[in-house]
């Protein structure tokens, strides 16, 4: 009687997405990032070796992060008034493999700056670092549709990951990303059905699946994390099961979300039994990020340097 085979076999797989283009590929990046390519669940090398390891992108802003918690601002205080220096710091000091920029300065509530400004900021970013880039609009539909075409064109050929296409606003971003050779974030509001639908809409516009990264608006530990986790896990399982529209790498904004949690940032003076927030804050981000990795996330957008370094070590130790 042979010992029964307990390893899972999957009919499908996760498509490989390359972000960033070198000079040989029509861009100016000195490195590229490949995500996806898996034939099995993450961190189970005995089941299916192969596929690309998850990567961390430092998540920065184009403006001084006035709304951030002091603990989060402190490590970046010498660089955050200049997007180029900030990005360079993250690449050189924190060794991140990507930079993600949210164009907060274009948001109607925080500066409402125009498309030319956005184009100049991303050009500066592009010139400051050689790693692949993620550029995220404001999330305000009219503003993004005005700003992102110029951003896309300023980064033409760099194979940037642009965000975000949603169910009700995807045509403009899809068309410019197509024209300028970029990748797209397809975003859904913690809804697996809509997540799939956005991917269908993008493929209807003939946007290739190997240029899409899925994003389910992330919930931090204690703030919808379990829901995000189960959706992401189900997406991954469906993709591995053969659903091509779900067999797409995933992205999560763990840093941003974790630092919204009261448990991350409430001062020790108010909650003495919780211990120091200087340890607790990064820990909250780390725990959120690690959970996301286990659900199958391929690109983590992170904030605090200590959290970034710890999760880098975690990936290096567990990924084979």
């Amino acid at each position: 009687m042979p010992i029964p085979e307990v390893k899972e076999k999957w009919a499908g797989g996760i498509v490989e997405v390359q972000i960033g283009a070198t000079s040989a590929e029509g861009g100016t990046r000195t490195s590229v990032v490949k995500v996806g390519g898996h034939k099995g669940l993450p961190f189970l090398p005995f089941e299916s070796a192969g596929g690309n390891k998850p990567v961390i992108a430092a998540h920065i802003l184009d403006i001084v992060p006035d709304e951030w918690h002091p603990l989060l601002k402190e490590p970046y205080k010498s660089v955050y008034n200049d997007v180029g220096r900030w990005a360079k710091f993250c690449v050189e000091e924190l060794k991140v493999e990507m930079i993600a920029l949210t164009l907060s300065g274009c948001h109607p509530d925080t500066g409402n700056r125009d498309a030319d400004y956005a184009a100049s900021v991303v050009t500066k970013l592009k010139e400051a670092v050689g790693v692949p880039l993620i550029v995220w609009g404001t999330g305000v539909v009219e503003k993004d549709n005005a700003v992102m075409p110029k951003v896309s064109s300023a980064l033409r050929g760099e194979r940037v990951l642009l965000g975000a296409a949603t169910q009700h606003n995807y045509k403009t971003l899809c068309a410019v990303a197509q024209a300028d050779g970029h990748c797209l974030i397809s975003e859904a509001p913690l809804d697996i059905n809509i997540g799939k639908q956005v991917n269908i809409l993008l493929s209807d516009m003939e946007f290739p699946l190997n240029r899409i990264v899925m994003f389910q608006a992330t919930g931090a530990l204690g703030y919808g994390f379990e829901y995000t986790y189960s959706i992401q896990e189900r997406q991954r399982l469906a993709g591995l099961g053969g659903d091509k529209l779900m067999g797409i790498p995933m992205l999560a904004t763990g840093g941003d979300e974790a630092w919204k949690a009261k448990e991350a940032k409430a001062p020790q003076s108010e909650f003495p039994q919780w211990g120091s927030e200087s340890v607790r804050g990064p820990l909250w981000e780390i725990t959120t990020a690690v959970g996301m990795l286990l659900s199958g996330v391929d690109i983590l957008l992170m904030r605090h340097p200590d959290a970034i370094k710890t999760v880098q070590k975690y990936i290096a130790r567990l990924w084979q």
Partner: peptide, 15 residues
């Protein structure tokens, strides 16, 4: 056996 979306038939055929 497959995840619902508004265009699930199109998605299924593509898969």
């Amino acid at each position: 056996k497959m995840i619902y979306s508004d265009d699930y038939i199109k998605a299924a055929i593509a898969s």
